[in-house]
Computed example of a mutant assay.
Amino acid sequence: MAALESIRGVYKVVDTQEIDVDIYLPQPERHGSSAQYPVIIDIHGGAFMLGSSSMVNMDQIDDCLSRKWIVLVPNHRLCPKVNLLEGPIQDCRDLLAWIYSGGLQTSIGTHTDLPYALDLDHVFAFGTSSGGTLALSLGFGVPRPVAGIFDMYGPCSFADAFWKTTLTEIKSKLPPNLSDDFINQVFSEDPVPITGGVSLEGQRVGGPNFSDPRQAYAFTQIANGRVMDVIFPSGEWDKIDPIRNITNSFPPTFIVHGDEDKMVPQYLSKGLLSVLSEHGVKSGMRGIPDEGHTFAAKMKVGSQTWNLQREGFDFLESLI
């Protein structure tokens, strides 16, 4: 696959900090300016503390472009200096408002004279891991939700006992000399970062760099079952937990989740599917055989995993 090119948009400014989004445009239609383009927001993973817009699966972007969708891959502020609701969730919701209010159309117009009329009735949200949760957060708590959601193994049910479980496999990889003073340097970062040095999706060979306080901090919290405590200390789960915010008007939702996931157990997604079904929300789920967490980064086009996860994009396309 040839390298995909994007244009940069700024959807939000906090004080003087620009929060940006990579905009990928499909090849323009040949039949004039009447073509309308659905939009899909593709949100990276990273336990709400790591990752960036560069750390997503480019083959999935290419798949969406081939469907004549405009793909937006945003950065957002990273926890823990800002909490989940006021940082990542609010940023993604502000991105959605920016799309609906004409900001995306204006941004595209500053980069190209080609006609890209947006189909604002079909703005979709997609994300992997924490990005899946953020995609789900665009289905509630907003004046105008997205038209459909594709959630790949996103965390939910934040009060579940699992979220306080020690993950021994991760803990065994932590260096023994990580001090609180060192990892807590994340609280002195100014401004709040919108990119973290590694993705949990596994794109970087060799794993995390524990000489970076942010990476060391994040993996320490994951290993010790403290992620929810540090990203949303108030524990007011009704405000942020997707499973507590499903109503009969929630957008159609498709879930993909690895059968062998140990970092976000599949039963959590099955519980979400059950609640969606109870409320009559159009929904579906595909378990992926033999796959653990973060498989999206490394799956190969044409593989069984690739073909099965595409059902999520097919689901969204069926809504158009």
Rank of each mutant, 00 (worst) to 15 (best):
I170Y: 13
I170H: 05
K171M: 09
L174A: 00
P176F: 06
N177S: 11
L178H: 06
D180S: 13
F182I: 01
Q185K: 07
Q185Y: 05
V186D: 03
S188F: 10
V192I: 02
P193N: 03
G197R: 01
V198A: 05
G202M: 10
R204N: 07
G206M: 10
G206N: 05
G206L: 01
G207R: 02
N209E: 12
N209H: 08
S211Q: 12
S211Y: 04
Q215K: 06
A216Y: 09
A216L: 01
Y217R: 02
Y217K: 03
F219W: 05
T220M: 06
R226C: 13
V227P: 13
V230A: 06
W237I: 15
W237H: 11
K239S: 12
P242C: 10
R244N: 15
I246Y: 13
N248I: 10
S249M: 13
F250L: 09
P251Q: 06
T253P: 14
I255F: 07
H257W: 15
G258P: 01
D259Y: 07
D259R: 04
E260L: 14
D261E: 03
D261Q: 05
K262Q: 15
V264S: 05
Y267D: 02
Y267N: 04
Y267S: 00
K270G: 14
G271H: 05
L272Y: 08
L272G: 12
L276S: 12
S277P: 06
S277H: 14
S277V: 14
E278C: 14
E278Q: 15
H279C: 14
H279T: 06
V281D: 12
V281A: 09
V281N: 14
K282P: 12
S283E: 07
S283V: 11
G284E: 11
R286Q: 15
G287H: 12
E291C: 08
G292Y: 08
